[in-house]
Design a protein around this nucleic acid. Structure first.
Lengths: 211, 211
DNA sequence: TGTACATCAGTGAACGCGCGTTCACTGATGTAC
DNA sequence: TGTACATCAGTGAACGCGCGTTCACTGATGTAC
């Protein structure tokens, strides 16, 4: 029965050790930062011998890259949900993407750290790079569709616009919005800060403020 | 003569070991990132026994905090030079502060990493916190003076404005503008990206574009 | 359905290494008189 | 100016520890017939 139960629960011993190591790493990153875990730590957390991880990852960096890759996947999903196909209207949906960005950084500090603050090169491997590009793609599509509402002569390039918003959101998330230690305190919430910045920015592009 | 020469050159052995360790740490951070150096490394680089650093720093984190503190000092100086007392006019000077921000991140990736990406709590010690606040203060004064150009009814809070610009500049610097590995590539320069974002943002606040 | 074999995920013991930290020490510099 | 002493920055040897990595292994699962 014991092994049956384990198999049902997610079964380390034979089964999904790879995913279990990713989750263990995530937990350790959350507690001690992306620099604060070791290959051996991850093995220990997953309840497995120190040699076991070598069956699945070449080294610590490969494990970290997998955490980041998985993080980008969830990030993309969260931004997509925020955008929601541009409904109810592009402007509202765009603001929702911004909110989703910060919500992700707050709810998943470990993923966020692995993705952006681990010192991992953005193209450590093709899968990682692709996952990052897909996540950015959501922002890009949103910017393009929002920009399309402006008259052709005053229409900003969607790429530029999406890079501006990404930078803004990332800056706020990494200075003020993380869910762990190292956050700077602020006389307002990170959400309010991003919201206000986006309002000013979009106004600068020529969007009318809604009531 | 040997010791005389060393004394003149900056003399580790008796003299400024503390500063030498900070510089060694800075060099190591530049090469291998803020997580990539050890207390023993720093001692070795400074040409001193592994026990020597204990005379000057409680532990590795205290050394890192000193690197960050010193970095904030230089950062403040660089931003101040950019602002230049608001000359020739506040709008131009404000843009110069933005340029100075990115120039610092590019020229001093090691300081920048210690200040913002080392996982060090912003108030690890009062000196560090004060140094960080002074640097931010430059941005704050600049924003206040620029905001003062707008009519009272349309004047944005300087604090909000400076937080927006800080976030923007930090986001761009940390995603695209670092002088080391881990930078994402971009179809434009980081400077152009910040410049364009600031133009849109300031337009949104009601500033007229200059020709 | 049953048996024989191949595959493969995880074991556990072992290793060399470099780290952080301590300690009693030494020898140069600073100070009192 | 010179001598005696205190101070203090850096030494070097030592330690225990946990890490990364390897290795021959074991035992469960999958496959062929």
């Amino acid at each position: 029965m014991s092994w049956k139960r384990r198999a049902r629960e997610g079964a380390y011993h034979h089964g999904n050790l790879k995913e279990a190591l990713v989750q263990a790493a995530r937990e350790l990153i959350k507690e001690k930062g992306p620099a604060g875990f070791t290959f051996a730590d991850a093995a220990r957390s997953a309840g497995v011998s120190p040699a076991a991880p070598y069956r699945h990852f070449r080294d610590r960096e490969a494990l970290l890259a997998d955490v980041a890759r998985e993080g980008f996947g969830r990030f993309e999903a969260m931004l997509s949900t925020g955008w929601n196909g541009g409904k109810p209207d592009a402007l509202t949906a765009f603001h929702n993407v911004g909110r989703a960005y910060l919500a992700f950084a707050r709810a998943e500090p470990a993923y966020y750290a692995a993705m952006f603050e681990s010192g991992l090169p953005p193209d450590a491997n093709p899968d990682l790079r692709a996952a990052g590009d897909r996540a950015f793609g959501v922002l890009r599509v949103a910017a393009d569709q929002l920009a399309a509402l402006l008259p052709a002569g005053k229409r900003p390039p969607g790429l530029m616009m999406s890079l501006h918003i990404w930078s803004m959101a990332h800056g706020i998330a990494s200075l003020f919005g993380r869910g762990d230690a190292g956050r700077r305190s602020l006389p307002m919430t990170a959400d309010e800060l991003l919201e206000s910045a986006m309002l000013v920015y979009l106004q600068g592009l020529g969007f009318q403020q809604k009531a």
